[in-house]
Design a protein around this nucleic acid. Structure first.
Lengths: 123, 123
DNA sequence: AAAGTAAACTTTCGATTTGAAAGTAACATG
DNA sequence: CATGTTACTTTCAAATCGAAAGTTTACTTT
């Protein structure tokens, strides 16, 4: 993966990496505490598994997530965000703020998300 | 244009609208004070004119920009952001902040951009 | 022991989107 | 009257998307 940037502008560079319809939705779900492929796949927006697999490879290649084996007998894996990944939270909050103010009938961003915590029930 | 949202989540709704490689770059340049098609086309990243035309139609349809005729004799038009459009600035700033911290050798977001002003020399 | 379930993916393939290049329309200028 | 400027549109091959089905490995149920 050649991480080529269209210009040295930090905004366009951000979009070079994350400017698509799915990647930041996956990051959102990981910030909420989801770790497993099937969990991420089953979200509200139904990421196709082909796209999810592709994006997880990209996240790992960019150092934003890590793949960890969490059991042996049937080999199973889960994903964790790195600090570089959790640092994306303010961007997602800003996006949510714009939508809540300018689009009708959107959900509210929960306080635990703003505060940097997981969804209640996850840890 | 059916503005269909994948879910009522404000983050995914934001990505339904702006989740691509070009639209927010165009918004960035408009926030910087660029108004004319040729100005927007000539930016650092070189938006193809076919994409620029398509995105401007979308911005207008969504109430984020307006098209104004600024001369008659050869009919010429320019674009202005609405309040709904300028409200995207905090999202772009958050994106830039992430890139400055996590990608090497990016430009710094200028203070006048953070402060909500145009580029020096534009008004 | 055969059948079914589950997790984590991969493969296939038609449809959509992208983006480079060239073309168009309406005038202005030299 | 030839060239330039602005604001686009058209064309088309290539890349990407995404729905559906298939694969692998191992455990669980009948």
């Amino acid at each position: 993966m050649t991480t080529e940037h269209r210009s040295p502008c930090p905004i366009s560079s951000f979009l070079d990496l994350w400017g698509d319809r799915w990647t930041l939705i996956i990051i959102r779900d990981m910030l909420v505490g989801k770790r497993r492929f099937s969990d991420l796949e089953a979200g509200n927006e139904h990421v196709p598994p082909s796209i999810l697999a592709d994006r997880m490879k990209k996240l790992i290649a960019l150092g934003v997530a890590e793949r960890v084996q969490y059991q042996d007998k049937p080999p199973r894996y889960e994903y964790h965000l790195t600090a570089k990944g959790t640092a994306l939270r303010p961007v997602l909050i800003a996006m949510g703020d714009w939508s809540e103010e300018h689009l009708p009938d959107r959900w509210h961003t929960p306080d635990w998300f703003r505060a940097g915590r997981h969804a209640p029930g996850r840890d």
